[in-house]
């Protein structure tokens, strides 16, 4: 097998994702007038900033071979905590923001500890976390809490011009900052490499003397923090706290990460891929909005089809690389 081909195999999922995004954008541009504009593109980021942030956290989890089902509930819980602290307790944003961010971070840390120290399945632990967080929302209030705070209003409505009358929101800036930090962490820190190693083979990582436990706990803490940050941004976006917010979002997030080319078995994938994955989910929605007559459930159908396609693609890549391995060994 040639060198070029092998590099291709490694980046194939990411390349496929990018190509898909471009194709979908071109398709939309050709079919609908007004689709091909910078603002439509920027809106993808504005509408999905929170999803990008959760997906970044989820990427670390999935890279390590785990899963985090609690993210959607944590978003709801964060929005609830932020809303009730602002509206009921009337705390200033300087206090509301850090406390809200702690919600997911602490929950993530606890789930990480459970997973590591008791050798529990991440699926079950985070499933419990999901129910717990969702339930806690209703403990705070069963009703939606509308936020009328100045700071929240400012965060929600500020438009940052980027030339030609186009704009982005503050949330996009935050999301981009998170993405940049995550890429740095994944590729230029020891922690990042440990995550990949853990996803490759936990047994090997242990025998190589890597801090497996610390890394695992850290991963879930990061995912929890990202969920809470996303929860805050979601609150800016919705200007309310509600126990039904982000229902089922964990599955959208996992879908975005997988479509972004990260192997569900762990060990391979890129943060940038997950961002593109989110954008693809976003563009499906945009297409459906432009189409006008389609029901929004078509989003789910499209996501389902894409997800299937990508899982099959990954399977083929894994199978192919293992056969190339065999032939290499035989030579």
């Amino acid at each position: 097998m040639t060198k070029g081909l092998r590099v291709d195999t490694k980046h194939l999922p990411l390349t496929a994702t990018l190509a898909l995004f471009v194709i979908m954008f071109l398709f939309g541009s050709l079919r609908y007038t007004g689709f091909f504009s910078t603002q439509v593109f920027l809106n993808l980021f504005i509408d999905n900033a929170f999803l990008i942030i959760v997906a970044v956290g989820m990427t670390f989890v999935i890279l390590s071979g785990g899963i985090d089902l609690s993210v959607g509930s944590v978003i709801a819980l964060t929005s609830m905590v932020a809303a009730s602290l602002t509206m009921n307790a009337e705390l200033p944003p300087v206090m509301v923001v850090p406390i809200s961010l702690l919600v997911g971070t602490v929950l993530g840390f606890c789930m990480g500890c459970l997973i590591h120290y008791f050798h529990l399945q991440p699926f079950i632990v985070t499933l419990a976390g999901m129910f717990l967080a969702r339930g806690l929302c209703y403990l705070i209030s069963v009703e939606s809490i509308t936020i009328t705070d100045e700071f929240f209003n400012f965060m929600a409505s500020t438009r940052i011009p980027v030339g030609n009358g186009n704009f982005i929101s503050i949330s996009v800036i935050i999301a981009m900052f998170v993405v940049a930090a995550a890429i740095f962490i994944a590729h230029f820190t020891k922690f990042g490499r440990n995550v990949y190693a853990l996803g490759g083979s936990e047994q090997s990582a242990l025998l190589m003397g890597l801090p497996v436990g610390r890394t695992k706990i850290m991963i879930y803490t990061i995912s929890g923090f990202c969920s809470s940050l996303a929860g805050l941004i979601f609150t800016f976006y919705m200007l309310s706290g509600y126990g039904l917010h982000a229902n089922g979002l964990e599955l959208d997030t996992i879908a975005a990460v997988v479509i972004g080319g990260t192997l569900l078995t762990g060990g391979a994938g890129y943060v940038a891929g997950s961002v593109v994955g989110v954008l693809i989910l976003g563009i499906i929605q945009t297409v459906i909005v432009f189409e006008g007559t389609l029901s929004s459930w078509w989003t789910k159908i499209a996501i389902g089809v894409l997800l299937l396609l990508f899982i099959v693609l990954q399977r083929i890549i894994v199978a192919r690389s293992s056969t190339s391995q065999v032939s290499a060994a035989a030579n």
Binding site: K190, R193, N194, Y196, G200, Q203, L207, L210, A268
Partner: peptide, 30 residues
């Protein structure tokens, strides 16, 4: 120890496998 089943991570590059756990840092980055 080098075990019968090579206990390295096949999803990482050769360099990473040699250095992981004892990476060389420069100005706070690998």
């Amino acid at each position: 120890t080098v075990y019968q089943e090579v206990n390295l991570c096949t999803n990482l590059s050769v360099v990473e496998n040699i250095f992981i756990g004892r990476e060389i840092m420069k100005r706070g980055r690998l």
